[in-house]
Amino acid sequence: MTEQYAKWTVEGDKKTKWICGCFLTADDYFKFCKNHNDILKKAIQTQIDELDMTLVIED
Rank of each mutant, 00 (worst) to 15 (best):
H36W: 02
K34A: 13
G12M: 01
E50S: 12
I48K: 09
A26C: 02
T54H: 08
L24C: 03
K17W: 02
F23S: 04
C20A: 06
L51E: 15
D13H: 07
C20R: 06
M53S: 07
I44Q: 08
I44W: 03
V10E: 13
M53F: 10
D13K: 15
D38F: 10
W8D: 11
L24S: 03
I57K: 11
T54N: 14
I19M: 11
A43S: 11
D13L: 15
H36A: 02
L40S: 00
V56C: 09
D13I: 13
D59C: 02
G21V: 01
F30M: 11
I19F: 05
K42T: 12
N35K: 11
D49R: 14
F30K: 09
K34V: 09
F30D: 03
E58C: 05
T54P: 00
I57V: 13
T25E: 03
K42R: 13
G12V: 01
G21R: 00
T9R: 06
L55F: 13
K41A: 13
K7M: 14
K14I: 14
K7E: 12
K14F: 05
D52I: 10
D52T: 12
K15E: 11
K42P: 00
F32Q: 01
I48V: 15
K15F: 05
V56Q: 14
N37A: 14
A6H: 05
F30N: 07
L51W: 07
T46L: 10
K14C: 08
H36Y: 05
L24P: 00
G21C: 02
D27E: 12
K15G: 04
Q47R: 09
E11K: 07
C22V: 02
W18C: 07
Q4G: 05
T2P: 02
V10K: 09
W18H: 06
I44V: 14
F32P: 00
K7W: 04
I19S: 08
K41M: 12
I44G: 08
T2L: 08
D27V: 06
L55E: 15
Y29D: 09
K15N: 09
M53C: 13
H36E: 06
T46S: 10
W18T: 10
K34W: 02
A43D: 07
K7D: 10
I39D: 10
H36N: 11
T25P: 00
D27C: 04
F32I: 01
F32G: 00
D49K: 15
W8L: 15
T16Q: 10
E50W: 02
N37D: 12
Q47I: 12
K42Q: 14
I44R: 05
L40T: 03
E11D: 13
Y29S: 08
M53V: 10
C33N: 01
E3G: 07
W8K: 14
V56R: 14
T9K: 05
T25Y: 01
D52E: 15
K42L: 11
V10L: 10
K15H: 05
D59K: 10
T2V: 05
Q45R: 07
D13N: 12
I48N: 02
K42N: 12
Q47C: 06
D27Y: 03
